[in-house]
């Protein structure tokens, strides 16, 4: 079947099989490999993209369901070589170790900040609770967000 969608501001009209996931479409058909497959079962969040303003696990969405959708992936986050504020804060706060969860994590944070520019620490944790990071222990990730939004104390997490 043929689907039409907008990804990172670019419009694509492409063939896809009915059973292909949005993740597979993004990675294999469009060649945007920044979005990762960690489990393929909607459990780890590594494949998170923003679809029509909402963060979704792209492994749990059929490409066909994204017909007509507006999608953002990690490749659309930076403006040329300039990191976005979220990316720069992640780098500065070392919210990144192996980097495999990072694109999905950034997408979840982006969705949060779009609706809540000054989230509480609890709201930040809730926004990323579907994104597993096996490396960091999450503190530096939460701090990357609080430093950006000015909503948390540095050097430790405000408890909920």
């Amino acid at each position: 079947m043929k689907i039409t969608l907008t990804v990172n501001g670019d419009r694509y009209e492409r063939e896809c099989a009915e059973h292909h996931t949005l993740l597979r479409f993004i990675r294999e058909t469009l060649g945007l490999t920044g979005t990762k497959e960690g489990c393929g079962m909607g459990e780890c969040g590594a494949c998170t993209v923003i679809m029509n303003g909402r963060a979704v696990n792209s492994c749990m969405v059929l490409a066909a369901e994204a017909d007509g959708a507006v999608i953002q992936t990690i490749e659309g986050e930076a403006k040329g070589p300039t990191l976005s504020d979220i990316q720069a804060s992640f780098e500065r706060n070392h919210a990144v170790q192996c980097g495999f969860c990072t694109p999905g994590m950034v997408m979840s944070v982006k969705e949060l900040l779009a609706s809540d520019p000054h989230p509480s620490v609890d709201a930040i944790k809730e926004a990323v609770e579907g994104n597993f990071c096996r490396c960091t222990g999450y503190t530096q990730i939460v701090e990357a967000v609080t430093e950006l939004t000015g909503t948390g104390a540095k050097g430790g997490l405000d408890h909920v």
Binding site: T33, G34, T35, K36, E37, T73, I74, E75, E77, A78, L83, Q87, A88, F90, E91, R92, H94, V96, C98, G99, F100, T102, P103, V106
Partner: peptide, 21 residues
Amino acid sequence: MKRNPESVLNVLGKTQYLDDL
């Protein structure tokens, strides 16, 4: 400021893992 180039690649989503090549 000093930047860790590996982390920059990671936040950009440009890091190439095995399945990304």
